[in-house]
Amino acid sequence: MRNILVIDDDEIIQNVLEKILVKEGFRVERAQNGKEGLAKFDLLKYDLVITDLMMPYANGFEIISKLKQHPNTANAAVIVISSITHEESVMDSFKLGVDEYIRKPIMVGELLLRIKKLLLSRPSNA
C-alpha cells in the first residue's frame, strides 16, 4: 500500500483528499500545519507528500526543503496545492524539487490522475 501525507490547514481539503485517496486504496496521514507535517515525517516512509504553501508554523517551502533531506521522504513525490498563482512561487516550488503544482480550487478528477501518474512512475518507498 502506498503512503501519502497530506499537509493543509484547510480542514475541508484535508477531509476530502483523505476520503478520495483512501477510496482509491492509499494509506493517508494528515497534518493541519507545517509543524505537524514535519513531525509526521518520522512516522512512515512516504511515496507522496501533498502540501499547501501558506500554512501556520512552517510554510510549504520549508516543508519541501526539509522533506528532501529526511530519509523517510527524500524519495517521495511532491505535489503542491495552493491558491498562490504568482509565477515566482510556482518557479520556486519547482526549483525545490516539486513534481506538480496544482492551483486551488482543485479539480478532483485531475488531481487524482496526476497522483496516479506520479506514483506509477516511481517504485514504492514502503
Partner: peptide
Amino acid sequence: ISYRKGFSGSTG
C-alpha cells in the same frame, strides 16, 4: 461556499 472555494470543475 467553503467547499466551492476549494473545488472547481464538475464538483464545483
